[in-house]
């Protein structure tokens, strides 16, 4: 039975190297969520070639894949508009990886992730697609209750059906809690973090990982250490500046898909302490 009848997961395909993984991820996620899969390819009005068909050919998969819905229009604006449709619950798109600019999303992806208010899964080239079940999602949380409240619906609707949540909180040097020398202290602190920030979705949540250090480094280390299949991040949709370093780092790392959930930074940022993720 569909869990989200009448809702769509929108796979945004182009000739990105990640296109196959984008399509596979979108297909699997849509199935896990009980949503419909909608595949779209946007053709710019200047008549640029539609290369998507070529990218779908290898392996004979194209014959089994849904035919992309081709829409003509300005690519970024059209994708954002499509994502804003009421029945779209999630978008999936690829990012480019260029040797000269490894942290560059690609101008289309950059525009979409910074403008769309929809949750998006960005699949880097080379990343394994999400299978939609039994996977491990690393969820870095900054300890602000509004951030936690913002991400909770995504975790409940999207992540819980597909696997296990592995929360992560990274302290900075200025905010290391008192009395954490004992492993018991760290356990209770982690349990408290889960209770306070993941209360509604703790059923498939592992004990949070508490770390101290540079957020990007700790998140990337946690991806490897905890064998995460994806990372779920709340963000303010600003790719520039220091606070987006985590997003840039994750996208540049490119080892796993990144679920980006936009939040209103003006509201979320007004609470809690800065500097830790």
């Amino acid at each position: 039975m569909s869990k989200l009848p009448g809702k769509r997961v929108l796979a945004c395909l182009d000739d990105s190297p990640a296109a196959d993984a984008v399509l596979a991820t979108a297909t699997n996620v849509a199935r896990a969520m009980g949503a419909e899969l909608d595949v779209i390819s946007v053709v710019p009005p200047d008549g640029s070639a539609v290369r998507r068909s070529a990218s779908m050919s290898p392996g004979g998969r194209a014959s089994r894949s849904p035919t992309p819905r081709v829409v003509v229009g300005p690519v970024e604006a059209t994708l954002v508009d499509e994502l804003e449709q009421d029945d779209v619950v999630l978008g999936v798109l690829g990012s480019r990886a260029l040797a000269a600019q490894p942290d560059l999303l690609g101008h289309v992806a950059r525009a979409v992730v910074t403008r769309s208010r929809r949750s998006l899964i960005v699949v880097p080239p080379g990343a394994e697609p999400l299978t939609g079940e039994g996977q491990r999602f690393l969820v870095p949380l900054d300890g602000r209750s509004r951030t936690s409240r913002a991400v909770a619906p995504v975790l409940a609707a999207l992540i819980e059906p597909m696997g296990t949540i592995v929360p992560l909180h990274v302290f900075d040097d200025a905010h290391v809690p008192m009395f954490v020398s004992s492993p018991h202290d760290r356990e209770v602190l982690a349990d408290e973090f889960a209770a306070r920030h993941l209360g509604p979705v703790v059923s498939r949540t592992e004990r949070p990982r508490l770390r101290l250090g540079a957020p990007v480094d700790e998140i990337l280390a946690a991806i490897r250490r905890d064998e995460a299949d994806a990372v779920v991040v709340c963000w303010s949709q600003h790719l520039d500046g220091g606070r987006a370093a985590v997003i840039r780092g994750l996208l540049a790392d490119g080892s796993v898909p990144v679920v980006l959930h936009p939040i209103d930074v003006a509201r979320a940022g007004s609470e809690g302490r800065p500097g830790s993720v």
Binding site: V180, P183, R211
Partner: peptide, 10 residues
């Protein structure tokens, strides 16, 4: 007593 645990550095 537990015999091992991760510290905050992982």
């Amino acid at each position: 007593t537990p015999v091992s645990a991760h510290d905050l550095r992982g």
